[in-house]
Lab assay of single mutants.
Amino acid sequence: HHGSGALAALHADGPHAGLPVTRSDARVLIFNDWEERKRSEPWLRLDMSDKAIFRRYPHLR
């Protein structure tokens, strides 16, 4: 199991509170979210491209 239990660094406060600090933090969040959702949506594709990251977390651009 590759990303399970990996912890992402999140901004503690300010405008980005609760959001990932780096792209690799964002990838951890996206992976964990996908892993949760694919139980009920097995067709869901995992997209951890930069484009997917920016779409979801525009502050990382």
Rank of each mutant, 00 (worst) to 15 (best):
P20D: 00
V21M: 15
T22R: 06
K51D: 14
P42V: 04
R39V: 11
E41C: 14
L60F: 03
F31R: 09
D47Q: 02
P20F: 15
L7I: 13
S24P: 04
G18A: 04
H11G: 04
D47P: 00
R27Q: 07
W34H: 04
G3F: 13
R56F: 05
L10H: 05
A6Q: 11
R37P: 00
E41M: 06
P20T: 01
I30T: 01
P58G: 01
L7E: 10
V21E: 07
D50M: 07
W43E: 12
A26R: 15
A52F: 07
L44N: 04
G3Q: 15
R23W: 08
A6E: 08
K38P: 15
G5W: 13
R27P: 00
D47A: 02
D50I: 10
D33S: 06
H11V: 05
L29W: 02
H16Y: 15
L29R: 03
R39T: 10
G3H: 12
H59D: 00
R45W: 07
A12S: 11
E36A: 11
A6F: 11
I30Q: 01
K51V: 14
L60H: 00
V28G: 05
H1M: 10
G5T: 13
T22F: 02
A17C: 09
A17L: 08
S40C: 14
L29A: 05
K38W: 07
G14M: 04
S4C: 15
W43G: 13
E36Q: 12
K51H: 09
F54Y: 10
R56C: 07
G18E: 03
A12Q: 11
T22Q: 05
I30K: 01
R45C: 14
F31G: 01
A52V: 07
R61V: 08
W34P: 00
D25V: 15
H11S: 03
L44F: 09
A26D: 00
A52D: 08
V28H: 07
A17H: 06
A17T: 08
P42Q: 05
Y57N: 00
K51N: 10
P15C: 07
H2N: 09
R37H: 06
P58D: 01
A26Y: 01
L7P: 09
H16P: 03
S40R: 11
H1I: 15
R45Y: 07
A6M: 14
S24H: 14
S4V: 13
A52N: 07
H2K: 12
N32V: 08
F54C: 08
L44A: 08
L60R: 00
I30N: 00
P58I: 02
D13Q: 09
P15F: 04
R61C: 11
R23S: 07
R37G: 05
K38R: 13
R55G: 10
L10K: 05
D13E: 09
R56P: 02
T22A: 06
H2G: 15
G3Y: 11
P20H: 01
D25E: 08
K51Q: 11
D13L: 06
D33R: 06
V21K: 10
A9Q: 13
P20L: 02
S4A: 10
R27A: 07
M48D: 05
S40H: 10
V28D: 03
F54P: 01
P15T: 05
H16W: 14
G18T: 03
E41Q: 07
F31P: 00
A12T: 12
L60T: 00
R27E: 08
R55Q: 14
D13K: 15
A26N: 00
R61K: 11
D13M: 07
R39M: 10
G5L: 12
G3L: 14
H16Q: 09
R23G: 04
L44T: 06
N32D: 10
I53A: 00
H59I: 00
F54T: 08
T22L: 03
R61S: 08
A6V: 10
A12C: 13
E36C: 11
T22D: 05
L19I: 02
I30D: 00
